[in-house]
Design a binder for these strands. Sequence first.
DNA 1: CAATATATGCGATAGAGTTGCAATAAGCAG
DNA 2: CTGCTTATTGCAACTCTATCGCATATATTG
Lengths: 150, 150
Amino acid sequence: MSHQSQKSCMASARRISGLLRENGLRATKGRAEVLALFFETGKPLAQRQIMEMLRLKLDRASVYRILNAFTAAGVIHMAYVDGRHRVYELPDRCSGRSCHPHFSCRSCGMTACLEDFKVHSQGTLGKGFVAERQKVLIEGLCPDCTEGKK
Amino acid sequence: MSHQSQKSCMASARRISGLLRENGLRATKGRAEVLALFFETGKPLAQRQIMEMLRLKLDRASVYRILNAFTAAGVIHMAYVDGRHRVYELPDRCSGRSCHPHFSCRSCGMTACLEDFKVHSQGTLGKGFVAERQKVLIEGLCPDCTEGKK
DNA sequence: CAATATATGCGATAGAGTTGCAATAAGCAG
DNA sequence: CTGCTTATTGCAACTCTATCGCATATATTG
């Protein structure tokens, strides 16, 4: 999947560089690769996973700085915190006020985006409060782990 | 508030010890005090805050172990992760499947429980998935910080 | 009150994330 | 394409949360 076609890789590389520059970020190899990983996997990623998936060598500190820069620029956002890990994702399917919910398995730690799961909120926050984003995390057991428990 | 009446303190101390034992936990001074803090404040607490509020001396490691033991026993649960801090609270107002939402101010970091805020979820997780808990975090600005931004 | 299993204190350690600084590479003008 | 300026990277040291092993202290049980 990573080397299907030079052409399409290059094409998306150009698209990604453009996206970086549009957001006021220099299009370095490291940044392009990290951003490409988000597009390729389409999944929420933590620094650790990014490090493991990198084809290009990149320092730990650089990955952290890249994630922070991306977050500040709004290219990605922190989806949720999993244990000690900050998990980021593209804000693709998220409106300004609410993000799609995430699922996290308490047994194996597997996580997933719940795109067909809708969350409606009702009620008032109180005077002066302004809600900007709504993060929902469903904890439970994934199919593999429910089978194991049977 | 901490020394209003010896009597009520002692009474609740006995109640707390009982609660610990009911959950299979030894009623040590440290554990009783930590659990009492959750009841007295009624607020979500992180290890750091607990350390600062302790009247009794207790080691950092012990507080961590106490929080883990309480969580394993179900006496408290992790409400959310605030930056690098795990924040715990009594499962008082939480049913088995859903927890009351929390608010977190992105400017000052202040957090609060949203008791009058209800969240309804709709949809399917997918075959084999079992939802056990639903954590909702609303991010935004608190009254103090909205005033500042005006 | 003594025996025993469990908690605690202390020090060392692990792991996520940050920072300072020198080296490097992107972006831009010519 | 070349050189200049400035942002980014690599490296190493560091911070901070959390955990672990082990000796000591303490709660529970009989």
